[in-house]
Every structure is written in structure tokens, then in C-alpha cells.
Design a protein around this nucleic acid. Structure first.
Lengths: 345, 345
DNA sequence: CTGTTAGCGCTTTCAC
DNA sequence: GTGAAAGCGCTAACAG
């Protein structure tokens, strides 16, 4: 039993064959005679050879058989977000099917994130929804490896997998805002700073996350079509995608002079918080107030939420497929509005 | 802009310095004069150099700065299990803090899983709870790299991070089974085959998952101490950790001649299914029937479940720490019983 | 502060 | 079916 690292050369020597025969034994077994193969395997067993070194192999082959996933500033956030997890599951599925591993690139929001992307031993990158000005985008691009962005921003030379958030927001906006006097939006962050704010008529263009921006645009279009001026629509921005924060901010909204009577939320988690706050404030849904969510997660079904259905899992799979060199199908139309009991009609 | 791959040597040449100066520019910038550094960086920019090749670097350094996580037979299951996700988050946190990546090793249950473990370019492995006879264990061991197992089985030469499941099951068993005539257990799978069964007095030793085995032992001890013979305790094994399956199997249990009046479940998800089936069958909890869960997940709080609290996130972090060479603290006592409203007293 | 040497462990030629 | 040579791109170790 070799105490140090055993190499293929040592195995070959003990087996009395050339290094190449030993290599073939691991990579193209049929190309080797049974006799040679068993000699090699026996020698390997005797020496405790752990198999071809993956790094050496990657260097020689020019491929790591691994895809990198960049989950955004804070890893912790991502794992707390069930949608991000579904997305990851879709990636993992496809990668497993191709014999590829998935590496989570350790982003923390610190200055060395760029280095971490650069140093990741992967064949391609998948970037989870981020802001237009995220330096990660440039870092990924600098690696010159295939890359696919989910959600946005759209980047030249990189793939993009996303639904048409504007169209979806418009569609669900027409449902949730119908008949409302004072609609409001509970929004995802506008920028990586993730500041919570309550402001009427937020300019969609001020949102640096493409997904947020497009959804705000869609909601605005819906509101205006229903005869409501956008500057009268309060946008409550939550720092995190979290039931509790949405609940608090909704409570604040409902306690104001002109409380909203319709709230479009950007996730089902948030919508769940909205519903909770509404109940606490004695509002009856949908009579006193309507609510919509986003994603059609399990909680949406449980609460009877009207929401936008999309499959992050499928989108994750599509990203992986594209990063592996496949054709990126368009996901623009892969959404639908699910009407349940938190809206009228 | 180089169309092919640019090497450090080319950068060095264009910059008019040696390869080592170029290398130092990336690895030990302070060791290089400002002048040389900027020449190198300029040349790199001009050539479109993407930075040192990670594979070559790994080979040379003998380290990949990546930890591998083996999630068990089916990736898909793992990502649907919120506890497994917390565990992953804990790993990712620690790895990010050390500048390490996390690679999900693509296990599918097929014969080539062993190959996939062998070929993973990682410095160490973390194995998520699996069965004693899982070939993955041997595969991980064969790599001779540091490895830590979560939950079980205990393997010589590998670290083990787990709570004392036997003690915890005994403790919660005393609570949930107290005053019961016909207790039952809704169990995780006994083996990797993941077969659903309903059997009285399942021998704990027949469970190949150490976690399941220890919990059954603890429940048995609690039952016997309360004067109930284990062979009278029905054990309903669920194939998956899933609300719906637990709900169905509980409905079956409750429809039998001798329906249980106390059910200890091995996860909060399952307990949620138990509660749902109990309500559907007109049982009042805890008067007609008591229920306990496991994990103290969000759903436990929502339902007021009596449960065993443990932090998979902390355990994931501990696994990563240990795999990175740190001291593996004992997690044996890192649990507690949380008494809520699904049990009496 | 900079450079030279050596070689990490493997697999792609291309020959036999 | 087997093997010899060459080198993937980089950095530890040691001079200077």
C-alpha cells in the first residue's frame, strides 16, 4: 500500500506494461487485451492506485467536465430561496445526465469574487439572475468560456434563459389590479445594495436587475391600461425574498393614509407575507384587497394565490444544456397566469 | 485579441519578462515591481489572457481548492429535501469563507457512479447520509482523499458528523408515545431500495441507513419503557421524504382495525402529512392522537409540531470544516426536543 | 525583485 | 493491441 501518491507510471511498471496500456485500461478498456487489463488492475490494486488524477487529466484533455454556477452576491440568500434551489436541481439533473459535475462558485460579495470566478476549474458558467452592473458578469466573460445567464442581464456573447417577465407581469397585473383604486407592488430589490424602500411610481428603469425592471414595466403597463397613473402606484421594495419582510412592509402599507387595495408581489413567498399582513389588518381577500404572487410554488397552491407559473427547474436545465453546447430554446413564453382565489372574477 | 488559448508564456514574452514574473503577477503581486506588474497586465489585456489555467494550476499545486459533495443515489431527491439543502448551504458557507468551491458529484444510481466519484477533481469529499452498503462509500474511500460522512454510516478513516439519533428518538418517543395504546412510526427508508411497507415491530437492525436504524432503536426503547411491546408498534416506511406519501400511508394506518393513537415521524414533512391525514380522518390532535416530527423546520413551527430540533446547516458547516482539515467537533448532543401542541402535557 | 530549471500526471499523436 | 515521444500550462524550488 503506497503511502504517497501513486502514479500511473508506477502501476504500469509493476504490471510490466507501458504507461499507455495502463492509461487505456482506464479510458478505453476494449482497446486492451484482457490479459494486460487484469495485470494493470492487479498492479493498481496492489499499489492502492486511486485512478487517474483528475487535475492532470483535465489539463491534458482541456476539459474539466464540470459546469460552474454563480449564484450571486450571497450564497446564503440563494440557498434560502426555493426557486434558486429548483433552478440548481435542473442544472444538476442535466449535468448528471452528461457525466458533468456542478461547481458552486463561492461568491461572497467581496472584492476577490472576480478571482474566484477566474480560478474556477469549469468548462462553462451559468449565472443566476443578477444586476446589470454586477462585476461578476465581466469576470465570467473574461474567462472566455461558454456562459449562460438566467433572468438577466442580457450580455453579448452569452446565452440568456428567461421568461418574458414584462409580458407576464402585464398579464397578471391586469388580473390583480382589476377594479382596484390604489394598487401597489411588493418588489424584489432594485439593485445589489438591496435597500428596502416605499416609493410611489418607481421608475422601472431605475431597477438594475433586469427581472425586476421588466416586471415593473409590465405592472405599470397594466395599471395604466386600467386607468391608474403609475405615479400613484406605491412600490415597496424588499431587501430579501422573505415572508417576514414582506409581511412587515405590507403592514406598513396598510397602516398608511391611503392603504392599497391590490398588491402584486414578485414572489409567492412575498405574497404569503402580504396575505398574512392583510389578515392581521382585518382585510378580507379578495373582497377588500387582491393579491398576486409569482412562481407558482407549493405555497401558492396552499394559499390559493393567483400567480405567474414558471418552472425554474426547466430553466435551470435549459441553462445547463446551453452551457454544454446545446441549442438554447427560447423560454420567453414558458409562463402562464394561474388564477386562484386571491383575485376576483 | 488571441483567438486560441493564450498562455502565460505568451503574455510574458509580450511583456518582455520571464514567465515567472508573469506568474508572480497573478499569485504574489507584492513580490513583483509595479513596473513589471503593469507591463504584464497590459500584455495580458492586449492578448486577452483569461488568467492562469485552473487545471494546470491544480495539477502543479496538487490541490483543486474544491470540496466534493455526494448527495446520494438521486440528485433530484436531494434537492427536493429542504434539510439536504440546508446542509448544502452550511457547506457552501464554510467553503466560500476559505475560497473553496463546492462540487456536486453527479450520482444517479447507475453503475458508473463509482467512476464519477473517482474522476471528481476535489480535495475532499462530504457524503450525505447513506446506507451501510452503498458502494459510494468504497469509491470515496478509494480516492484516499479526506472524507466526512454525515449521519452515517461510520466508516474507518472517515470523519462522521451526526447527532445522537438514538438518544433523540428515545427522548421524543417518550413524549409522543406517552399515554398511547397503539403507537406507530412513520419512517424513512430502511434501504436504498426505498420500498414502502407497513409492518409491526420492524427490527431496527434491518435498517441499512444508520440514521433510520438509530431512530428506530430510540423509539423502541421509549415504547418499551412506556410498557408497550415493540412488536405491537407498526412501522410505516415511506419511500421518499414527502408530505403526500406520508399522508397516504397515514390514511391507510388510520383506516385499519387498530388505528394508531400516536405517530412518531422521522421528518417534519412526513409529520405534516400525518397531521393532514389525521384531520381528514376526523382525529383531533393531540386529544385523539399525538404526532411528532423531526428537524424543527419552518413547517414544524407553523403546525405547532412537537419535534426534534437540529441544525443541518451547522452540521454541513462542520462537515466542510472537517474535510478542510479542521477538528470535527462532536455533534452528538446538538439536538433538543421542542414540545408544541401535537403532543400532550 | 527576477529568472532558470524541472516536472506535476496524464493522454494525444503517431508509429509499430 | 501496444508503445515512445511530446507536451498540456503552470508554479515550487532554488539561484542570482
Amino acid at each position: 500500500m503506497g503511502s504517497k501518491r501513486v502514479t500511473l507510471a508506477q502501476v504500469a511498471e509493476l504490471a510490466g506494461v507501458s504507461v499507455m496500456t495502463a492509461s487505456y485500461t482506464y479510458n478505453q478498456p476494449n482497446r486492451v487485451s484482457d490479459q494486460a487489463r487484469s495485470k494493470v488492475l492487479a498492479a493498481a490494486a496492489q499499489l492502492g492506485y486511486a485512478g487517474p488524477d483528475p487535475s492532470a487529466r483535465s489539463l491534458r484533455r482541456g476539459s474539466t467536465r464540470t459546469l460552474g454556477v454563480v449564484l450571486g452576491e450571497h450564497l446564503s440568500y440563494a440557498f434560502d430561496d426555493p426557486q434558486a434551489v429548483s433552478f440548481l436541481a435542473g442544472i444538476a439533473d442535466v449535468c448528471a445526465g452528461h457525466g458533468y459535475g456542478v461547481t458552486i462558485v463561492p461568491i461572497t460579495g467581496a472584492a476577490d469574487d472576480v478571482t474566484r470566478v477566474r480560478d474556477a476549474a469549469v468548462d462553462g458558467f451559468i449565472v443566476w439572475t443578477t444586476a446589470d452592473d454586477d462585476p461578476i458578469i465581466a469576470a465570467v466573460r473574461a474567462t472566455k468560456r461558454p456562459a449562460v445567464v438566467h433572468g438577466g442581464p442580457a450580455v453579448r456573447g452569452m446565452g440568456l434563459v428567461t421568461i418574458d417577465n414584462r409580458a407576464a407581469a402585464y398579464a397578471v397585473g391586469l388580473v390583480v389590479f382589476a377594479g382596484a383604486q390604489r394598487p401597489a407592488v411588493v418588489s424584489c430589490p432594485l439593485s445589489r445594495e438591496r435597500i428596502s424602500t416605499i416609493t410611489p411610481g418607481v421608475a422601472p428603469s431605475s431597477a438594475l436587475f433586469a427581472v425586476t425592471r421588466h416586471r415593473l414595466e409590465g405592472y405599470r403597463q397594466a395599471a395604466e391600461e386600467l386607468g391608474i397613473a403609475w405615479h400613484d402606484v406605491v412600490v415597496a421594495v424588499c431587501a430579501r425574498n422573505d415572508v417576514t419582510e414582506a409581511e412587515h412592509i405590507t403592514a406598513t402599507l396598510l397602516a398608511s393614509d391611503e392603504p392599497p387595495d391590490a398588491i402584486a408581489a414578485m414572489s409567492d413567498e412575498q405574497a404569503a407575507g402580504v396575505v398574512r399582513a392583510a389578515h392581521a389588518a382585518g382585510r378580507v381577500i379578495p373582497d377588500d384587497m387582491t393579491v398576486s404572487g409569482w412562481d407558482d410554488a407549493a405555497v401558492a397552491q396552499r394559499l390559493g394565490l393567483t400567480t405567474v407559473a414558471q418552472s425554474l427547474r426547466d430553466q435551470g436545465a435549459a441553462c445547463a444544456q446551453a452551457a454544454l453546447g446545446g441549442k438554447p430554446d427560447s423560454y420567453a413564453d414558458a409562463w402562464s397566469v394561474v388564477r386562484r382565489t386571491t383575485t376576483r372574477g
